Simulated scan of single mutants.
Amino acid sequence: MLEQLLKVKKHKERGIRGRIALLDYKQRELIQQQVALKNTRLKLWESWRQRCNESGILDYEKLVNFKAAMADLYRRDLQMGEETEQLNQQQQKLEKQRIELSSSLNKNRIEQEKLKYLLEDETNANSA
């Protein structure tokens, strides 16, 4: 019976390790998304600075176009800020899940060690 329980614990350990590997994969993807978003946002800010550095006299049509372009850049910056916050929240959630799984894995391994000692004691008692 103890041997079967040990097999169940080992199977559970493989499952936990698989879920940890999946979380690690998702975390790497999330980091790539964060980097891409940061680079896109930096390019947006550069576009903003370039538009602000334009000089000259603007007639009404150019002024309207300039204001529309600046409003669009501002809207996109706000949107990217929200996306960044969402990615950060996802990152925190994944980290919390990883900590919980690691704790579960450690608990499982301790239980396996206890079972191994019990099996060893049982084997020694039977051979004596």
Rank of each mutant, 00 (worst) to 15 (best):
40 T>L: 04
69 A>Y: 15
59 D>Y: 04
62 K>V: 10
27 Q>G: 00
66 F>L: 13
78 L>R: 08
70 M>Y: 01
124 N>T: 15
96 K>P: 04
32 Q>G: 11
53 N>V: 03
95 E>S: 15
110 I>D: 08
76 R>V: 15
119 L>P: 05
35 V>F: 04
47 S>V: 02
89 Q>K: 06
37 L>I: 04
106 N>L: 07
36 A>H: 04
42 L>Q: 14
90 Q>N: 11
112 Q>L: 04
42 L>D: 14
15 G>R: 02
61 E>W: 08
106 N>E: 08
65 N>V: 10
32 Q>W: 05
108 N>D: 10
120 E>N: 13
103 S>N: 13
106 N>Q: 14
76 R>E: 11
78 L>V: 03
43 K>A: 08
90 Q>W: 06
116 K>N: 07
19 R>V: 09
81 G>C: 06
105 L>Y: 03
12 K>C: 02
121 D>W: 06
45 W>Y: 13
32 Q>I: 03
67 K>A: 14
25 Y>F: 07
36 A>Q: 06
82 E>C: 10
65 N>T: 13
32 Q>K: 12
110 I>G: 04
63 L>K: 14
1 M>W: 01
73 L>Q: 03
56 G>S: 01
86 Q>V: 04
65 N>D: 13
26 K>M: 14
89 Q>P: 03
40 T>A: 10
109 R>A: 05
78 L>E: 05
86 Q>K: 06
106 N>M: 05
97 Q>A: 11
3 E>G: 04
85 E>Y: 08
59 D>S: 08
117 Y>W: 09
114 K>G: 06
13 E>A: 14
79 Q>R: 14
4 Q>E: 00
96 K>N: 09
81 G>R: 09
38 K>M: 01
70 M>F: 02
116 K>G: 00
105 L>D: 07
91 Q>R: 13
116 K>E: 01
26 K>Y: 14
88 N>T: 15
94 L>Y: 15
16 I>Q: 01
30 L>E: 04
124 N>A: 14
102 S>V: 00
12 K>G: 00
41 R>D: 01
46 E>Q: 08
22 L>Q: 11
81 G>Y: 03
78 L>G: 05
50 Q>N: 15
30 L>W: 05
36 A>Y: 01
113 E>L: 03
37 L>V: 01
87 L>A: 09
16 I>A: 02
17 R>A: 12
31 I>A: 07
4 Q>W: 02
75 R>L: 12
101 L>M: 11
88 N>V: 15
37 L>H: 03
118 L>P: 01
118 L>V: 00
72 D>S: 15
66 F>Y: 15
77 D>A: 12
42 L>K: 15
116 K>T: 10
39 N>G: 08
78 L>A: 04
67 K>Q: 13
45 W>S: 05
47 S>K: 12
7 K>R: 08
83 E>N: 10
121 D>G: 09
36 A>L: 04
106 N>K: 10
9 K>W: 04
113 E>T: 05
123 T>Y: 06
124 N>I: 15
71 A>R: 07
117 Y>D: 02
66 F>M: 13
125 A>V: 09
13 E>D: 07
89 Q>D: 02
46 E>C: 02
22 L>F: 11
